[in-house]
C-alpha cells in the first residue's frame, strides 16, 4: 500500500483533515514533521495553514527549508494546497508568486475551478468544473509572463474563466499550476475540504484520485 506523507511545518493547520481525506481512499496517510525524513513516502502532500505564521511572505520560510530540497530531489508526486502551493512557489519549484488578494482581506468561500489542458497528473480531469472551497489571504497569482503550466482556473459554474469568477485578483484567473515536469501541482483551493458529503461537495475527490493514481504509478 502506498504511503502519503502530509508535511507539517510549525503553523501548518490542515494536516489532520488532509490525512482523513486521504485515508478515505484506502491509502496510508500520516503527518510527517518538517524535520523528519521522507524516504519511505510514495507521495507528498503539502498541507494548508500558516507555516511559521506566514511571516515575511506566505510560505517563505517553509519554502527555504531542508525538507523542500529533499522533496524536490525525491522525484515523488507532490500536491500542495493553499499554503502548500505558496510554499512550492517560494521554493521555486513552481513558477510565479502569490501576492495578497486584491481586496487585501482574507477570503473564505466556495468557488468553481475548471481544469485546463496541462502536462501534469491532473490532465485527465481536463474540462471538468469542480466546486471546492478556498480560504486564503495570499492567493493572487502573479508572474512576469503568462505561465505555461496552468492546471486550473477560477471559473463560473459553466466553466467560463470570467473576471467575475476571480476571487482574489489572480492573473488570468489562475487557481493552480504545475512544475515544469508535471510532477508537482499547487493550487489555492482545498480539495481535502470537499471530500465528504457533509462538507457540501465531493468534487475534491477527483483531484485526490488523480494525485493517487500518479503516486501508484
Amino acid at each position: 500500500m502506498s504511503t502519503i506523507g502530509v508535511i507539517r511545518f510549525p503553523g501548518t493547520n490542515n494536516e489532520w483533515e488532509t490525512v482523513r481525506a486521504l485515508q478515505s481512499f484506502g491509502v496510508e496517510a500520516k503527518v510527517v514533521e518538517h524535520n523528519q525524513q521522507i524516504d519511505d513516502l510514495d507521495g507528498i502532500w503539502l498541507a494548508g495553514g500558516f507555516s511559521y505564521g506566514d511571516v515575511l511572505r506566505a510560505g517563505a520560510i517553509a519554502g527555504a527549508s531542508r525538507i523542500m530540497k529533499d522533496i524536490s530531489r525525491s522525484g515523488r508526486p507532490v500536491l500542495g494546497a493553499c499554503n502548500g502551493f505558496q510554499i512550492l512557489t517560494e521554493a521555486d519549484l513552481i513558477e510565479g508568486a502569490l501576492l495578497p488578494n486584491t481586496t487585501t482581506r482574507f477570503v473564505c468561500k466556495w468557488i468553481y475551478m475548471t481544469i485546463t489542458e496541462n502536462d501534469s497528473y491532473l490532465n485527465e480531469l481536463q474540462g471538468s468544473t469542480l466546486r471546492i472551497p478556498i480560504a486564503h489571504f495570499e492567493g493572487n497569482f502573479w508572474s512576469e509572463s503568462t505561465p505555461e503550466n496552468i492546471v486550473a482556473k477560477y471559473s463560473t459554474r459553466d466553466g467560463d474563466a470570467a473576471p467575475r469568477a476571480n476571487p482574489n485578483g489572480s492573473m488570468d484567473n489562475i487557481a493552480g499550476l504545475s512544475s515544469n515536469d508535471g510532477r508537482m501541482v499547487g493550487m489555492m483551493p482545498h480539495p481535502e475540504r470537499s471530500c465528504f458529503k457533509h462538507q457540501g461537495s465531493t468534487d475534491g475527490r477527483k483531484i485526490i484520485q488523480a494525485f493517487l493514481k500518479e503516486v501508484h504509478g
Binding site: R20, F106, V107, A135, R193
Partner: peptide, 9 residues
C-alpha cells in the same frame, strides 16, 4: 467571508 469557515474539515 474573512474567517476560515472550513478548516479542520
Amino acid at each position: 467571508q474573512q474567517y476560515d469557515q472550513h478548516v479542520q474539515g
